[in-house]
Design a protein around this nucleic acid. Structure first.
Lengths: 343, 343
DNA sequence: TGTTAGCACTCATTCCTTTCGAGTGCTAAT
DNA sequence: ATTAGCACTCGAAAGGAATGAGTGCTAACA
């Protein structure tokens, strides 16, 4: 339904606006090398594109800016993945050089990503729910406190301090740890509560006598919320974007970005592949004039987490999509290589 | 050298400005109940206070604002600690209710502090250098990766993944862990490197054969940098302060606050008690128009960490100083109660 | 019939001027 | 020593005028 010429003009306008952040006028377009038409012709086409909803004016005699529909069309039809040799190498080296824990990689990725793009990067995960318990340790600290340490097959370590009653003797504690290790090895974190209620509660009664209170404490330590880890990089990059030249916008952005819960919800809904949400396409009102690009990374079948970039709707979609694609594949690879022989 | 009346006027002006953020004029002062003088008299006194450097004008016919010297005098001589029954209780409950790990307490404290004050709170620590190793675990994850877990006497858990060569056999690994536990129990984290070089290297040679590579890996895992933990709460509170109505100031602030290294240096220099740095009194240029109040908290003799509040020079010094005092004492207490029977 | 030149018109932005009012400093009176 | 009074200063807000980038439309052209 769009002519070749309209496609070309739309693309050039959006490319120009993404770079300059200024409304694009007909004369500027006509001057481009790829455009063999006069400003007047461009004006006519622009008027048509506006009628069709791909462009907007900021006021009656201004140049045009892309509408959300325009960006959507641009993302869906007008961009081909860009080749990012240099950036790709940066990411690969970061992930493959040295031996970093996965959480370190995630954190570094968030930083690199925001540096390469000048937008705000958000990385969610790794989702511990999919991972399985590997080993449990309980280490007494003092007469009435101890720390429980859980290690998962992905090398993730969680610990919880808990208080132990004075009366308990150390052999009882040891027996409990043994039972836990026997029973919980290989159990997905998500199913811990279930497993406790179905089997372990009863077992504990059978093998270990008179430890009601300390067992409750221990169980409590295991079933506490497992917080979702959230890494955000380049928050202040947004301040450099010309659309954030207004104190109120900045306030709104920072109020949003520091609300972890909201961010987690925002990212969690993303499924496979790369998803682009432009402006009001986002459910969350606070980012209704920003765009969010998300990509999932995996370990085997189960989804592990989400990588995202948040920027103005005037975003370098081409570059961002390519970068996220590279990074999510690298992260999936490194996870696979590292934990393929898990048990 | 200041008359009683000048003291009174200075105090009223600063109090007023702290509340309103607007330059204070003579008429407004004269209207206050505690002031039995006319505006003209106040004007004369204000001129004198300005000559002495306690007050400033923003322009030739504006009201007065406090100078840094004025704030300094105010902090040193004009404020008595305020009674914060309600806020004090909030803090006490937070710290004493439930059983939280110390790091959780620190994080919660940062949040509560920024909520109670509407400034930005920064908490440094707990300094792990002062703490001692309690136990070491090494847990194999796959054929060639393992995770080393260090637990300190304060319940702090650190973990590092490292790769192990395929050739190693598990009994060798076990021997190594035993040696490490024997040798390192009770050793301050700070002295780990020393201890390794002085004794453990040699021991390993004696007891365990042919494990050069994996031992190097393991040692590397132990001697990696122990990052200083930094908790910052209420970054966006600053945006609500009227002095941050300018995009450039916001940029400068966020650029500074997200530079962890600089922040750590800023706080580390603080010694005992509560220290107030007003505006240019701060060494760091980036906060030359902010004030920083720091308080140390302790475990026994050794300093553990620092609590700080960062706000505009027009800060509620009275309240902030009282809050920091309460919180640092509570944190010191809880540390003492919890780890007094360490070994 | 598609393209382009030309021109009147629109509107944000910038700069200047005016007005307003809060506040000062100084002088003279109490 | 204190205060009333008054001229003066200066920032902030409000109102024009000038500028210029950009449009829509019409009429001419290939």
């Amino acid at each position: 339904m769009l002519t070749e010429r309209q496609l070309l003009i739309l693309q050039v306008i959006i490319d120009d606006f993404i770079e300059s952040a200024h409304p694009v006028g007909s004369r500027a377009i006509a001057k481009k090398e790829v455009i063999p038409y006069s400003a007047a012709t461009i004006r006519n086409e622009m008027a048509d594109l506006e009628d069709m909803g791909f462009l907007e004016k900021t006021h009656s005699s201004s140049g045009r800016i892309p509408s959300e529909k325009g960006y959507r069309y641009y993302v869906d039809h007008l961009i081909s993945p860009s080749i990012l040799q240099k950036e790709g190498n940066v990411i690969k080296h970061m992930i493959q050089d040295g031996f970093f824990e996965f959480e370190q990689i995630v954190q570094m990725s968030a930083e690199v990503l925001s540096e390469l793009t000048n937008y705000t990067s958000i990385i969610l995960g790794p989702e511990i729910f999919e991972t399985k318990l590997k080993q449990i340790q309980i280490i007494p600290l003092s007469a009435n406190t101890a720390v429980a340490i859980l290690v998962t097959n992905t090398g993730h370590v969680e610990h919880r301090s808990f208080s132990i009653p004075e009366e308990i003797n150390s052999s009882d504690l040891e027996k409990m740890v043994n039972i836990l290790n026997d029973q919980l090895h290989g159990v997905p974190i998500l199913q811990l509560a279930e497993k406790f209620n179905a089997e372990i509660d009863a077992m504990m009664q059978k093998y270990v006598s008179d430890l009601d209170k300390s067992y409750q404490h221990l169980k409590g330590a295991f079933l506490q919320d497992h917080p979702v880890k959230l890494y955000i990089g380049g928050k202040s990059n947004m301040l450099m974007q010309p659309e954030f030249n207004d104190v109120n916008k900045i306030r709104a952005f920072y109020t949003m970005i520091e609300n972890e819960e909201e961010i987690v919800n925002l990212l969690k809904q993303s499924n496979d592949g790369i998803k682009v949400s432009i402006g009001r396409e986002n459910d969350v009102d606070a980012i209704k004039d920003l765009s969010l690009i998300t990509a999932a990374y995996h370990l085997g079948e189960g989804q592990m987490g989400t990588i995202a970039l948040l920027g103005p709707t005037r975003m370098e979609y081409r570059k961002v999509i390519s970068l996220l694609s590279i990074l999510s594949h690298e992260m999936t690879d490194v996870l696979y290589m590292r934990y393929k022989d898990e048990n």
